[in-house]
């Protein structure tokens, strides 16, 4: 049961990582790429690490295994807070340095 749940979580996380990578390669400009990686990587990392934490609980519900799962969830929470902030910082400094956004006519000079 736990293994099935872990597989579902990790597969969903890998799906979001894949969409983030495709967005990073295929989107036209800086801002679209930043939003693709910012959102996709955050959710992908959260789901993958949650799946790993669930999978480790297969070794039995004792104190050491639960502690290791809690440590993994701390990493997930850290990424969940820090990654959108880093994306925001990079995007904002790009805007202030004068990176032009993409429109239908292409990037405005």
């Amino acid at each position: 049961m736990l293994t099935t749940l872990a597989i579902i979580f990790i597969a969903t996380g890998v799906f979001f990582f894949t969409t983030a990578t495709i967005g990073l390669i295929r989107f036209p400009d800086f801002y679209c790429r930043m939003q693709a990686t910012g959102k996709g990587d955050t959710l992908g990392a959260l789901l993958s690490l949650a799946g790993l934490a669930l999978y480790y609980l297969n070794n039995g519900f004792s104190l050491p295994t639960i502690l290791i799962s809690i440590k993994v969830m701390f990493i997930a929470i850290f990424i969940f807070i820090a990654n959108p902030t880093a994306t925001h910082a990079i995007t904002k400094s790009g805007l202030e340095c004068g990176v032009k956004p993409w429109t239908k006519e292409g990037i405005q000079k």
Binding site: A82, T85, A89
Partner: peptide
């Protein structure tokens, strides 16, 4: 003109994250 070194989101999150780090 917004000062590049003063951003309320980054400062709040940093204040939140520095003690756990």
């Amino acid at each position: 003109m917004i000062n590049r070194f003063e951003n309320i989101i980054i400062q709040t999150i940093s204040r939140l994250l520095i003690p756990p780090i």
